[in-house]
Design a protein around this nucleic acid. Structure first.
Lengths: 212, 212
DNA sequence: GCCATTCCTTGACAGTCGTCAAGTTTTTCT
DNA sequence: AGAAAAACTTGACGACTGTCAAGGAATGGC
């Protein structure tokens, strides 16, 4: 085979790979939405296919098995959900502004992406039973922790202080509040959600120690 | 019917009800252990029956359907898990002792009852997808919050201070730490668990404000 | 326009699920 | 001891699951 022909074949192969990956991603997104709607326990391949424009058989053309598909869906989740507050951190110039915009976005995504968030907690819990999810879950959880830490440490910086807890503790505190708010959001208990919102600024202040 | 005969029948009926309830509870406990081992998504009635000394058909003799059975199992969980720290609160005479014993029991039950705890989080998440679990979950979550509040407010009292956050925030903070410790416990990451343990006293102190 | 490859659909498979009815065993009461 | 009631087992049902093979439809290179 000449080199020209070889390069040409490479180009074709690459294009095919791109198309393949694009469809994989498309199906993973459909999977993500189905999971967010039904939860892990009740999501079947046929249901996923119905949320796409293809039939159920195609899933085995693009994915080895169900686990492979769901793993890919989880990775799609990560792409969406792990840089959410970065712009707030980048553009805020005062501590007060950063805190206010963080709180706003916190409860905005709570209302906006509630099904997706319940899915995340569902999958994180699945990883307590199913070892094969654990590595991905731990990685995403780490990224979420980093994301929260970027907010809080920047807040402390703007305030002229330092964080009062380690990154892990800081993360679980805010994540715990989010989980609780999510539960009451789905319960329809708007009052409790509003109360959590009004408390959140004070909790953030608890997480940083102002300079003397 | 004479009054004597009537009372006798009552006694019989009561005994039958007691037996019925006893077996219901027995089966609910078997259900609880199966759920703790497999998780909600993979627990079937036949598997539950195999963890008891009966056949699968008996479950429909004592329970209306699967939901009824699982609901009863969740109530069994509550009986076990909602008064865990009360003795620590009752017997501790100094703040330091209370904090130390709380931390010890916190990580003791983490290692001891880990499967049961992951089940709790699993079911709490299910309630985000399945409305019929929500009422029970909210009730248990409330009791857990009360339990934590009894500890922290007593700690503040012994310290001569006051809690620095509301009960809900206090609960989610400690619960978040527990969830994270559980995840790393199942991952086999003992180092992270140990670190969370060493941090916990400081977090508790963060949750109370000492008097000036 | 033809061919080969890729893409997708269809239908079937073996297995599992919750549920329930029929029948057997055990217990209880007189 | 014998009858009645309760407790439990067995086996079956329709529905649903993940998986996969066979074949049709679309696509792209020549």
């Amino acid at each position: 085979m000449t080199e020209v022909a070889s390069r040409k074949q490479d180009r074709i192969a690459r294009r095919q790979v791109d198309k393949f990956d694009a469809r994989r991603t498309e199906l993973a997104v459909a999977t993500l939405h189905t999971l967010a709607e039904l939860g892990y326990a009740r999501t079947s391949l046929r249901e996923i296919a119905q949320n796409s424009e293809f039939s159920h058989g195609v899933l085995h053309y693009y994915f080895a098995d169900k686990r492979d598909l769901i793993t890919e869906a989880v990775r799609q989740y990560e792409v969406v959900c792990v840089t959410r507050y970065d712009e707030v951190v980048a553009t805020s110039t005062t501590a007060e502004q950063l805190r206010a915009e963080f709180v706003a976005m916190f409860f905005d995504t709570l209302g906006q992406d509630a099904p997706l968030h319940r899915l995340w907690y569902d999958l994180r819990n699945q990883s307590l039973f199913d070892e094969s999810f654990r590595a991905d879950v731990l990685e995403i959880d780490g990224h979420r922790e980093d994301m929260v830490w970027r907010v809080v440490s920047r807040y402390a910086e703007l305030l002229g202080g330092t964080p009062s807890a380690l990154p892990g503790t800081t993360y679980v505190t805010l994540d715990g509040i989010f989980q609780r708010a999510l539960l009451h959001h789905f319960t329809g208990n708007a009052g409790t959600v509003a109360q959590l919102r009004s408390e959140l600024p004070a909790v953030i202040d608890l997480l940083v120690t102002k300079a003397e």
